[in-house]
Every structure is written in structure tokens, then in C-alpha cells.
Design a protein around this nucleic acid. Structure first.
Length: 268
DNA sequence: CAGAGCACCTGTGGGC
DNA sequence: TGCCCACAGGTGCTCT
């Protein structure tokens, strides 16, 4: 489900509730969700800062860190404990002090919580976060130049830029009038594409993310940004720029939404 | 190294 | 209504 804006929304909300709270215990309802690696026990540890890189959430503790990836359908819910019955999709429950609980809910069971001493080895394989100020249009342009991949596959790969997924790639390519099969090194307008990626992500962050079906924030609420899609999920509907029909094709193994008139190969 | 195919899972919606 | 298939905000593995 979630891409950068959804994970950022969750991170911001967790920053308001978790720091300083102590973990009393945890309950595991689906073993594979939780990977305890080389870290000291969780009970007794307190939450510190909450970070994010790409689609990974980083919940720092006194002596270790919880690295969480929501994958397709994961949700993190923060609420008062004991108020609501367990949901059939709940996979992990952290009981905190102050009468709070943190629930990891995930219908498809793809999501992962890794408890490790350091997130460093994991993050080393990840590219720079798409919203990181250290990432500039010039740096982005030089990465494009070195790649033979098509632009959609390039943007979906998390090793160059981290955080983009299927929705926001399609939206950014539409705004940039780029066909998803255009080879990355042939993209002539690196700067407009870079700016459109930022625009699409920032607008969604401002709207608390996009909800297609499963995404919820930590309070269980849906995002609002799906109202502003130009192409994602709009196959058969008129393009907002030219009025022609939006098409759905397959690129890099993913359903891909384009306006074939506005986004032509080899043209920007 | 790039790309395809499949694996991991469950739920939903379309076609018949 | 019911059955079957394809597909879904992601990633990681194997094989070519």
C-alpha cells in the first residue's frame, strides 16, 4: 500500500505519541511479521526519535531500533489499550505504559517489523530519500544519465531514490509528459521530472496520503490525496489535460496508467 | 547487471 | 448467487 507520503504521515503521527513511552510487552499473532535479530529484549525499553527513509519507518529505542515496512496492506494504529476487540488482521500488539497500545495490522501479511541493534546495514542498500534536501535536480540528473533502465523501473527501484511506488511514479511521469518506457538516460528534462516528483509527493503529504482501499493513518483514518490523481486508477476516463482516454498498460510488471497522447516515447 | 517470473498472502471485483 | 481468475500502494529471490 503505502509509499513515501503515507509512511511520512504515519511517522509524523507517531512522533506525537511514542517518544518517551515504555514498552511493557508485545503479543505476536503472526510469527513471520516480526523478525527479532541481534537486539536486546524489547520490554522495558523506551521509544526515542522516529525516523523514516523511503518507505521504512525507524522507531528508535534506548538500545535498539524497530525497522518497519508496511508493504502492501500494513497499518500502524496507536490508541488507548483495552478499548477495542482484537481484529482478525492484527499481527503484532505492543503494550505501552500510560495505557497506550501500538497495533500492527496487515491483511496480506507482507509487512515486516525487524528488531535490530542498528538499521545501518539495511539502509545502506537504500537510495537517498526522495524528499531529502541533499538530493538535488543535478544529482538526480546524473543518476539518470548512468542508467539503461526505463524511467518507470528506475523510479520504482529503491536503490537510486527511495520512497516512490506505483501511484506516484505514474503521477509524476504524467505531469512530466514522459512515457514510462523512455530509457532513463534519454530523459531530457531531469529538472522538470525532479520538480514534479517533489510536487506530487508534497501534495500527498499535505493531504495525509492516498487511500485506495487499505491505507489508514495511526488513528484509523483514510488519506485524502486520491481525489487529486490525474492518471492512477483513471483508465477509460478523460485526461485532464487533453480530454483523451487514460489507458492502462503493463510496464516493469506493474499496472501503469498513462495518457497516450500527452505521454509519448522520446518526447518531453 | 537488467528483466522476467515467481513467491509471499488475502481480499475484492469482474466475467460468465 | 457462485465459481474462477486476475489483480492489488512492495520487495526479494532465482534464473536467464
Amino acid at each position: 500500500m503505502p509509499e513515501l507520503p503515507e509512511v511520512e504521515t504515519v511517522a509524523r503521527e507517531l512522533r506525537a505519541v511514542l517518544p518517551g513511552k515504555k514498552i511493557r510487552s508485545l503479543e505476536l499473532y503472526w510469527e513471520k511479521t516480526f523478525e527479532h535479530q541481534d537486539a536486546p529484549p524489547l520490554p522495558g525499553q523506551r521509544f526515542g526519535t522516529i525516523g523514516r527513509q523511503g518507505k521504512y519507518l525507524l522507531l528508535n529505542l534506548d538500545k535498539s531500533v524497530l525497522v518497519i515496512h508496511l508493504r502492501m496492506t500494513g497499518q500502524l494504529l496507536a490508541r488507548r489499550s483495552g478499548q477495542q476487540a482484537r481484529h482478525s488482521h492484527d499481527r503484532v500488539r505492543f503494550l505501552l505504559d500510560d495505557g497506550l497500545e501500538l497495533i500492527f495490522r496487515d491483511s496480506r501479511k507482507f509487512g515486516r517489523i525487524r528488531h535490530v541493534l542498528s538499521a545501518e546495514p539495511l539502509l545502506r542498500k537504500l537510495g537517498t530519500d526522495a524528499m531529502d534536501q541533499k538530493l538535488t535536480a543535478a544529482l538526480f540528473g546524473s543518476m539518470l544519465q548512468k542508467s539503461a533502465m526505463n524511467i518507470k523501473a528506475f523510479l520504482l527501484s529503491q536503490k537510486y531514490i527511495a520512497g516512490l511506488g506505483n501511484i506516484y511514479v505514474d503521477e509524476a511521469l504524467f505531469l512530466s509528459a514522459l512515457h514510462p518506457l523512455t530509457p532513463a538516460r534519454e530523459v531530457s528534462g531531469a529538472e522538470p521530472l525532479f520538480n514534479n516528483i517533489r510536487l506530487v509527493l508534497q501534495r500527498s503529504i499535505d493531504n495525509m496520503g492516498s487511500t485506495i482501499s487499505d491505507y489508514r493513518n495511526t488513528k484509523g483514518n483514510e488519506g485524502l490525496n486520491q481525489r487529486y490523481f490525474n492518471v492512477y486508477g483513471r483508465q477509460g476516463l478523460p485526461c485532464k489535460k487533453c480530454g483523451g482516454p487514460i489507458e492502462k498498460i503493463r510496464v516493469a510488471g506493474r499496472g501503469t496508467h498513462i495518457c497516450p497522447r500527452c505521454q509519448q516515447r522520446g518526447k518531453t
